[in-house]
Amino acid sequence: MSTKKLPFDTLAELIHSLGERGKTAKALDINPRTLVTRMQDPSTFTVGELLKVAGLAGVDLTVVTGLAENQINNPIEPPAPVLGRPVRQH
């Protein structure tokens, strides 16, 4: 399989591009809150979950793990769930 170049630098951005988080979490067979945790810290993903992300995105596992590694080495604030949605105050 060839590795497709994506316009993303992090796994969180790739997952965000997949659409509504509730549907993505369901497709990954995890709780939506767990998905948020995984997006914040990709090292918490299981290999099985990473394989499912790769399948949903239509890319190789190496692409997904590369994005995860880049995000682990360069932490970011994950993209907001939905534009226009209120942000929780800390």
Rank of each mutant, 00 (worst) to 15 (best):
Pro75Val: 01
Thr3Ala: 14
Pro32Val: 04
Arg88Leu: 06
Leu50Tyr: 04
Gly19Phe: 08
Val63Gly: 05
Asn73Gln: 14
Gly22Ser: 13
Lys23Cys: 02
Lys52Leu: 12
Leu28Ala: 02
Glu13Ile: 02
Arg85Leu: 11
Pro79Ser: 03
Leu51His: 10
Ser2Ala: 11
Asp9Phe: 09
Ala54Arg: 05
Val59Asn: 05
Lys5Tyr: 06
Met1Pro: 10
Val59Trp: 03
Phe45Leu: 09
Leu51Ile: 11
Ala12Gly: 01
Thr34Ser: 15
Gly84Arg: 10
Ser17Glu: 12
Leu56Lys: 13
Leu28Cys: 03
Pro7Ile: 13
Gly48Ala: 14
Pro81Ile: 10
Asn70Thr: 15
Val47Lys: 09
Thr65His: 04
Lys52Pro: 05
Ala80Gly: 11
Thr44Met: 11
Gln40Pro: 05
Glu20Tyr: 14
Thr37Ser: 12
Thr62Arg: 15
Thr46Val: 10
Leu11Gly: 01
Lys4Tyr: 14
Gln40Ser: 11
Glu69Val: 10
Leu11Thr: 01
Pro86Gln: 13
Thr62Gln: 15
Ser17Ala: 12
Leu11Asp: 00
Val47Pro: 02
Ser43Glu: 12
Pro32Met: 03
Lys52His: 11
Val82Gln: 12
Thr24Glu: 03
Arg85Pro: 01
Pro7Trp: 09
Thr44Ile: 15
Arg21Val: 08
Glu49Asp: 08
Met39Thr: 01
Lys5Ala: 12
Gly55Gln: 15
Lys5Asp: 13
Phe45Asp: 00
Pro86Val: 06
Arg85Ala: 08
Asn74Val: 07
Leu56Phe: 12
Thr46Leu: 12
Leu6Pro: 04
Gly66Arg: 01
Gly58Ile: 05
Lys23Gly: 08
Met39Gln: 02
Val36His: 06
Met1Cys: 14
Thr3Met: 10
Val53Leu: 08
